[in-house]
Design a protein around this nucleic acid. Structure first.
Lengths: 207, 207
DNA sequence: ATGCGATCGTGAACAACGTTCACGCAATCG
DNA sequence: CGATTGCGTGAACGTTGTTCACGATCGCAT
């Protein structure tokens, strides 16, 4: 079918245009009519490849998650010690946590609009499975250092704690960059993350 | 002027109706036409007492902040030791931090829609001064225990750290209650807060 | 090659939204 | 009592996202 190919082309063009608009002007600037004009298709054509704009935004957000995945895999991870961890190895695990958090900050600061779209987008329908899968996948990076700091925790407790560490870091970055509270410069914010996540890691290890 | 009184009555009625709608159905359910119908005034009348709906929402949010202020002042605060703190006094300060964080969670869980409105509302204009003042005031509660845990910090550094602790806690609560990630029950979330904020407090004290 | 049916993009139209503004009513003053 | 002033009114406007009857375009059989 030649038609399938055209559909795929249109879908890709819409994704590109939507991503560009979001990255340049933020999620609220994404308008169906502008989008159609950008890719040179009719207004209704959008709805032949996506059920609604929500689905399109979700697809863009998936791209953002993939981008972030590449950023996070570039973080240097301390090797997991075998058996009980030495104090130095625990320090290394804490440092890994801090590096992961700083990488999160760096990504958010480098892609502010794209990153905001991840959270600004309020979903009405249930989220698709692949979206949740991607989220869980990202939490795994946090679990490795946690295994060193808290070898006593079970799989489930560790996953929960990893989620909580992410949430705390997200809070720091989110409110730090957001204009609702006072905006902090990236270096200042980085310092706060190092202090807070560092203290958090050390506190977890001894508790 | 009898007219001034009528204006004030209308303003109060609009605030009440808007607050009720937000509390019951969330910020997105707030519609100008419904609001006018609720208070029995014309559509345009709203704009004779508020410049736009944003201002109305902001006024509702101020009420929410006042509510929260009452909740947070009910938290038991460990007395500030004079001179250097003993280990027991440090523990008490950490516990105070945990209690403050749990109070935040409790408020958010008890008033989910009102609390969400505080952050869902994206502001286009600059925020009014009284709004920022109220925020800073709330951060002060966190600074007292921090003074015990980190007497070495200057006023400015402590204020910044207090803000960061709030941000981290907010992240925990926000993502914990939000349906975008998996929703956690309040007891589970409370446990996570106790673990994370507790570790954070202990880590800060030794660092 | 030609006609016919199916298929799919089109963009005018719809509903709902926040916001505005010319009108008309009512109260006040000369 | 009539003129004037002030103010609430709600129809109307400009934007939204989404839909759907229409018409063009393509594939296939004749």
């Amino acid at each position: 079918m030649r038609n399938e190919e055209r559909r795929e082309r249109l879908k890709a063009a819409l994704l590109d245009a939507a991503e560009r608009t979001i990255a340049e002007s933020g999620l609220p600037a994404l308008k169906a009519r502008d989008l159609a004009k950008d890719v040179g298709c009719a207004l209704g054509a959008i709805y032949t490849v996506f059920p609604d704009l929500d689905a399109l935004i979700l697809a863009v957000n998936l791209r953002t998650l993939a981008l972030f995945d590449r950023a996070i895999t570039a973080v240097r991870i301390a090797p997991e010690p075998e058996g009980a961890a030495t104090p130095a190895e625990r320090d290394a695990a804490v440092e890994t946590l801090v590096r992961l958090a700083v990488a999160y900050l760096h990504f958010a600061a480098a892609n502010p609009a794209r990153w905001r779209a991840l959270f600004q987008h309020r979903v009405t329908h249930a989220l698709p499975d692949w979206y949740l899968v991607e989220q869980v996948r990202l939490f795994r990076y946090i679990e490795a250092p946690l295994r060193v700091l808290r070898p006593d925790l079970g799989e489930r407790e560790r996953a929960l704690l990893a989620r909580s560490l992410f949430s705390a870091t997200h809070g720091l970055v989110s409110l730090g960059l957001d204009e609702k509270l006072m905006v902090l410069s990236e270096p200042v914010l980085r310092g706060q993350i190092e202090i807070v996540v560092g203290a958090l890691g050390r506190g977890l290890a001894e508790g």
